[in-house]
C-alpha cells in the first residue's frame, strides 16, 4: 500500500507535510549536500528583511538540556541579495519555497512583502512576528493580539502569495493570538517560535549568550508546542503548521494528531543534517503500519 503524503495548505499543494523551521536551514544551500531538497514538502528560508541586518554579538548560541538557545538576531543579507542568490538557487529544485519575512516596523515588513509580489517561485510567505531576539518590532507584533491582527491585515493587502503568520509562544493565551491572526486574514498559522530563555555560565559569572536572553528550541519544548498547536488549531479554521522539537516521524505524527496540517523540523537539523528525510520516512512507515492511506487524515484526529 502506498501512502498519500500530500497535504494542502491555503490552496498550495505539498508533496509531503515536512519542511524546515525558518533559521535552521539557511536557504537550503548549505544543507543541499546532505538533503535532496526535491524530497521536501517545502523549504522555509531564513528570515529576510528589507536591508541587510548584522544580527547580535557572539556568543549567539548555547546548548541546553535536550535543546539549545539562540540569539542570532536575524542576521541576513537583505531582500535584494536574497532574491538574486538564495531564491535563484531554490528555483532549481522541485519543492515549495516559503519565504520568512522579518522587519522592525510595519513599513519594513510591507517593503519585503511587496518586493516578493512578482517573484513567482515564492509559493507562500511566512511572517516572523515572533523573534524574541530583536529588540524592536518582531515580537512586539506577535505578543499583542490587536497589533497582530492589524499587521496581518496590512500584509494581506500587499501580499501576492498566501500568508502564514508565525506565532510566538511567549504569550498568556495562544488561542487568542491564533484568532487575531485569522481575523486579520492569515491564510495559515505556524507555531511555535522559540521560548524566551536564559542561561548563565556560572564559571564566568556571565550570561551564556551575549544577548542575555535567547530563544529556546529543541525537544525540550516539544510538549509545550504540541499543546499550543492543539489549542490554536481548535480555535481557528485556517490550517496550522506545527513545530517545536520534532526529531522523527513519531514526533511529526504527534503534531498532526494535535491539529497540524504540516510540520517543520528545526533544531534537529543541526543534530542530524539528514533529519528531515528520516522524518518523511518515519511518517510514511507509521501510516503504512497503522493502515493510514493519506497522512492528512491524521490532522486533528485527537480531541
Amino acid at each position: 500500500m502506498s501512502v498519500d503524503l500530500s497535504v494542502d495548505i491555503a490552496g498550495v499543494s505539498f508533496k509531503n507535510p515536512v519542511m524546515d523551521a525558518s533559521g535552521t536551514f539557511g536557504s537550503g544551500m548549505e544543507y543541499s549536500e546532505f538533503v535532496d531538497l526535491n524530497k521536501l514538502g517545502a523549504v522555509v528560508t531564513k528570515g529576510v528583511s528589507d536591508s541587510p541586518w548584522e544580527g547580535n554579538q557572539t556568543p549567539r548560541i548555547a546548548e541546553t538540556p535536550s535543546g539549545m538557545m539562540n540569539a542570532i538576531g536575524l542576521q541576513n543579507p537583505g531582500i535584494d541579495v536574497f532574491i538574486e542568490r538564495d531564491l535563484r538557487f531554490l528555483e532549481g529544485f522541485d519543492t515549495n519555497v516559503i519565504v520568512n519575512v522579518c522587519g522592525h516596523t510595519e513599513e519594513e515588513y510591507l517593503k519585503v512583502v511587496e518586493r516578493l509580489a512578482d517573484q513567482k517561485s515564492v509559493r507562500m510567505l511566512e511572517i516572523n512576528v515572533s523573534c524574541p531576539n530583536v529588540k524592536t518590532g518582531g515580537i512586539a507584533f506577535g505578543t499583542d493580539a490587536r497589533m497582530l491582527e492589524h499587521i496581518t491585515s496590512e500584509i494581506k493587502k500587499k501580499a501576492a502569495q498566501p500568508v502564514i503568520m508565525k506565532l510566538s509562544p511567549n504569550v498568556t493565551n495562544i488561542a487568542e493570538m491564533g484568532r487575531a491572526a485569522e481575523s486579520g486574514g492569515a491564510d495559515a498559522i505556524s507555531l511555535i517560535n522559540t521560548l524566551m530563555a536564559m542561561k548563565i555560565d556560572i564559571h564566568k559569572r556571565d550570561f551564556a549568550i551575549a544577548n542575555k536572553t535567547g530563544g529556546l528550541s529543541g525537544p525540550a519544548i516539544r510538549p509545550v508546542a504540541v499543546r499550543m498547536v492543539y489549542e490554536v488549531s481548535h480555535a481557528v479554521k485556517v490550517p496550522v503548521i506545527g513545530m517545536g522539537g520534532i526529531t522523527n516521524g513519531e514526533d511529526a505524527i504527534e503534531f498532526m494528531m494535535a491539529g497540524a496540517s504540516a510540520i517543520a523540523v528545526g533544531m534537529y537539523n543541526f543534530h542530524d543534517p539528514g533529519a528531515m528525510l528520516k522524518v518523511i520516512k518515519g511518517i510514511e512507515d507509521f501510516c503504512e503500519k497503522t493502515g493510514v492511506r493519506a497522512v492528512r487524515e491524521l490532522t486533528g484526529c485527537v480531541g
Partner: peptide, 16 residues
C-alpha cells in the same frame, strides 16, 4: 573558535 550549532554555515551562530 566560537560556539557552533550547525557547523555548515546555516545557523549563523559562529560569526566574527
Amino acid at each position: 573558535e566560537e560556539k557552533m550549532a550547525c557547523g555548515v554555515g546555516a545557523c549563523l551562530g559562529c560569526v566574527v
